[in-house]
Nucleic acid binder design. Sequence first.
RNA 1: CGGGCCGUAGUAUACCGGUAGUACAAGUGCUUUGGGAGCAUUUAGACUGGGUUCAAUUCCCAGCGGCCCGACCA
Length: 423
Amino acid sequence: MRQSKLFTKTRKEAPADETSKNAELLIRGGFIHKEMAGVYSFLPLGLRVLNKVENIIRDEMDKIGGTEMRTSVLQNKEVWEKSNRWSDEVVDTWFKTKLKNGGEVGLSFTNEEAYSNILKQYVSSYKDLPIFPYDFKNIFRNETRSKSGIMRGREFYWKALYSFTKDEEEHNVFYEKAKIAYQNIFKRVGIGHLTYVTFASGGTFSKFSHEFQTITSVGEDTVYLDENSGIAINKEVYNDEVIAELKLNKENLVEKRAVEVGNIFSLGTKFSEPFDLKYKNENGEEKLVVMGSYGIGLGRLMGTVVEVLSDDKGMVWPESIAPFTVHLLSLGEDKAVLKEAEKVYESLLKAGVEVLFDDRKDLSAGEKFSDADLLGIPFRAVVSARSMKDSSVGGIELKKRTEEKGKIVLLDELLKILKEKNA
RNA sequence: CGGGCCGUAGUAUACCGGUAGUACAAGUGCUUUGGGAGCAUUUAGACUGGGUUCAAUUCCCAGCGGCCCGACCA
């Protein structure tokens, strides 16, 4: 993509009404646009990142047997009354609205009811189980206080998977698979080294749920981390009994602030009961379906990556979710340079490399460099009089975002290095 | 929901009870071209409503909106 055609512009100054680093950098870089408190639109660059995060999650969900679908945003009041979660006294984050005929509808704030209700129609035999449907969609929560940029919004994009299994045993097998899939996801988006499986409060049907907490000082949660085992305990369930049960040593636990980037939860029959979600087993006996829920907020995950990987010059995207693989800069107005840069751009496109080409005219080198640092694309390729002088056949300066100095390469070498990244 | 701070061009800010200034962005012209460059010129602004006053962007009240702390967070 040509940067001259990208309508979003970078800003030198941080927005006055945002103090969180993720919002500041994402807005300055033109990745997101704030609509109102807790509500953000995704601009072209931001959407590219979001789509990549989505594809990684989709890949991991499909690998463990997930089947993607999409539940509606508008939700039927009667369905939620079954689980006693329609009332504002029970759930105070509902956005509700009225139909022309006077009926009430709600905007999804979670998906348990929708899935339970749908599956009621399709599950009747043990042969129908297990199934693991999931979706990506926008979720609405009327938070009394949204905060921290895209980390806690009123409207946000998430993935929710629900497991429907015959019994606890089958549930537990999937639950462990999901745990590994989640760890894979956080590794693949570049925050695996800071993200820990965390024991948190469960519910009626399980003692614990598991959160995936990314250590960062801007986190909302407090966890106690054992670095050796890689296990953490959320403050909400932290006590001597739990420490002993998890075979941890209190002296090794360190208090940390963290962001919850994912959560998996055993639901038991909490929802299958009110929805009368049953199947017949081999002996013709009716049994309740055992459920679990597995959620990830994609905006929050993206914001967390910005929080933990950025430096003082801007964002630093991992190759896996960067909006582009390489940022190609042409410097100066020299005709030979412009021609060479065009050639490099066309070659990269032809090779299938995702490239953002800063072909903007009349910009100083400093501005282009600063923008490149701010946008945080993993590789920067510069074509300039200087880079070309270093080689009789047209040199290109290639530098990683995380490196101070680059090296001069020829086009073939550039293509070879970058093609692998987009393989 | 309780508490605090704050609403001035597209963005970031300043001053002021009497003509609202600057920087960046944007337009034009010229210069510059390896770390947000320069000169000239143009465009563009006081959240809404009420009150006090000869006069309110400024003071007071309310509403709306924003950020932060706390509470809450399947």
